[in-house]
């Protein structure tokens, strides 16, 4: 592995630049990212269909705005809860693809299984508790915006052994410290652009369905398939953006691009000395 030969050019970027680069990453790694997306999202889609089955039936039968609203809100809650686990395969793939020409599924699966205890502890059990506090919903999205990347890619232990090893909690706290203002603005930007993109994808799918099949109604297919799939597609894209933003944060805060350069040069010198 040549550390200074990354597949995505490492440099400081503006947030909008990161969104553009994410499009290039998606276009270049489309097939593999789609597979990673499906691995994480399909179980979530099925789980949501099962959990919200009754609410969906009520929407179809009653055709009332309240029932539709409850269904959509329920879906959003579930998606927010499932998001870290469902997007983990994409993050792991991108972490490998940064350096390796062809990430190996077996390696990715092993990394995922090793990260599951921490993902469940921090992201499935702890994360929802923040939503119970006033404005606590901001904490996971702002103060721990890149916790998934820290868990999946940096692989620090859950507990410190003898107080000397850096834990995931300490690492995440250090990475996000003094960045809350900027991360809050980034989150607002994600909300705005995410909403635009979501309505763009859903609207396009709705129009295409209408033109091709002549179905224009606000019906079961729209709520059961088009709405959640559009939502998860946009979330998948934003997972790529989040990965790039995480790299950008590490570059600015920790000189990560410099560390890669220095380590690569050290490897060259060591080989030469040997």
């Amino acid at each position: 592995m040549q550390l200074d030969h990354t597949r995505i050019a490492i440099r400081e970027r503006s947030l909008l630049n990161l969104y553009d680069m994410a499009l290039r990453v998606v276009a270049t790694h489309g097939g593999a990212l789609l597979a990673a997306w499906a691995c994480g999202v399909l179980p979530a889609l099925l789980l949501n269909r099962w959990l919200l089955g009754a609410a969906l039936e009520e929407v179809v039968l009653s055709d009332e705005a309240d029932a539709t609203f409850s269904y959509v809100i329920g879906l959003l809650y579930l998606v927010i809860w499932e998001l870290p686990l469902a997007t983990a395969p994409i993050t792991l793939y991108l972490g490998q693809a940064m350096f390796d020409q062809r990430p190996r599924p077996r390696v990715l699966l092993g990394q995922f299984l090793r990260a599951v205890p921490q993902l469940v502890w921090y992201q499935v059990l702890w994360r929802p508790l923040w939503f119970l506090l006033p404005f606590g919903f901001l904490y996971p999205f702002v103060a721990r915006a890149y916790l998934n990347e820290v868990i999946l890619l940096e692989r620090n232990p859950l507990w410190s052994r003898g107080g000397k090893t850096m834990t995931t909690r300490a690492r995440a706290a250090g990475l996000h410290a003094f960045m809350w203002g900027e991360l809050f603005l980034q989150w607002v930007m994600v909300l705005i652009l995410g909403s635009l993109l979501f309505f763009s994808v859903l609207g396009s799918a709705y129009l295409l369905r209408g033109e091709l099949l002549g179905e224009w109604g606000f019906d079961r297919t729209l709520l059961e398939i088009l709405l959640p799939v559009s939502l998860w597609l946009v979330i998948g894209y934003f997972c790529v953006v989040r990965f790039l933003a995480y790299l950008d944060l590490r570059i600015r805060r920790e000189g990560w691009e410099l560390e890669l350069l220095v380590r690569a040069e050290a490897d060259r010198l060591k080989r030469h000395l040997a």
Binding site: Q2, H5, T6, R7, I8, A9, N17, D20, M21, R24, V25, T28, Q101
Partner: peptide
């Protein structure tokens, strides 16, 4: 040489 993804 690894191909770079870049906007440059």
């Amino acid at each position: 040489m690894v191909a770079h993804l870049d906007d440059a």
